[in-house]
Nucleic acid binder design. Structure first.
Lengths: 191, 191
DNA sequence: TTGAAGTTAGTGATTATTAACTATCTTTGC
DNA sequence: GCAAAGATAGTTAATAATCACTAACTTCAA
């Protein structure tokens, strides 16, 4: 479990990375935006890297929770994917800072532990969508002449790029609307 | 025009970012891998940021050249997209280090000039693919019930994710084969 | 009274960049 | 043709600023 202060450090760290990039994520900047001294940070995390590790662990947990929720229903495959899409966009609109961190694998490239965690998160989402697609193909909701891994790649790849563009363009278009449009395209393409 | 030394500095910078991340891209590291002293770097670039600007300018030029080539033929739309895909994968296989830089927009987040260049490159590729899709829809090579911007998003988004995964997984699968598979999926989905 | 969470003041290492100097080409004036 | 002058590209040594992190001390609530 995380203490309140730890949660705050994680949140502010994500915001810092989003606004200033990984190079702006310094203990000094972090302490400043929180309003405590630099050494106080070390009362809550042993090393700077531990903060990044915790960020990725939180993302992984969030992903696992979404996987559970999407599969714990008797929705059709398309409805499950719709749920995942909607849920993800909801999170991104509420906390846009997450985008810059979760879709920026290169940030974690230095550290082998961090890189491994990123790959794990990728695989988890890929496998979850593959599973959903497979069930949809069995139920004839999704056409069966295309393999599940390609479809999962297309689903995730386009959502990622859409969200990233929204962020790069200072969130100056309606992500919900564009997301719905993309989802509709998927429905047309895959039935 | 770039001098030989400038080209070398650019190449080694990209490699540094690819292997160590943006945090490993220091003048000290750069000087070391090139085999000259740190101040010598400043004989060829005024500031560290100028190196990053030049990297992005090169990427943009490369994109413009590919756009020209893809449109300077009487290929069908699908063939043009196939050309773009093949060409890009060729470049990535030859110089995998590029992947970590060109698909890592967050690296350039600090600097407004750099961020703007990234958005420009995005828009250029999006518009080019949209144009190709539009011509394909006019010729009935591509189904017309889906708008070109969605299809362009899907094309680019999935290719990006495929290439990034290949890189994240230490290039341990056949990118050409997976790329061909993805292209085939597009053909099935869009005809 | 003790432990958690803060403080100030400092550590050595590293950062981008500059100053000053040098060896080696290249250009220019006679 | 050839020396003077200048440009090019390198060097060592140093700069102030910043980095992650630590030691030692204080505050305060359970």
């Amino acid at each position: 479990m995380q203490t309140e202060r730890q949660t705050q450090i994680i949140e502010k760290s994500i915001e810092l990375i989003a606004t200033l990039g990984i190079q702006g994520f310094t203990i000094k900047n972090l302490a400043k935006v929180i309003g405590i001294s630099e050494p106080a940070i070390y009362r809550h995390f042993d090393h700077k890297t531990d903060i990044l590790i915790t960020i990725l662990d939180n993302f992984k947990e969030m992903g696992e929770f979404m996987t559970l929720m999407s599969n714990n229903s008797d929705d059709t495959a398309i409805e499950k994917i719709e749920f995942l899409f909607t849920k993800m966009m909801e999170i991104f609109i509420e906390q846009p800072a997450i985008i810059s961190v979760i879709f920026s694998e290169e940030i974690f490239k230095n550290d082998e532990i961090l890189k491994e965690k990123i790959v794990e998160i990728h695989n988890m989402h890929q496998l979850n969508i593959e599973m959903i697609v497979e069930s949809g193909q069995l139920n004839k909701d999704i056409r069966s002449d295309i393999d599940k891994s390609s479809l999962a790649l297309i689903f995730m790849g386009s959502l990622r790029l859409l969200v990233k563009r929204w962020d790069l363009n200072n969130q100056n278009f309606d992500l919900n609307k564009e997301g719905a449009k993309l989802l509709n395209t998927f429905k047309l393409l895959t039935n």
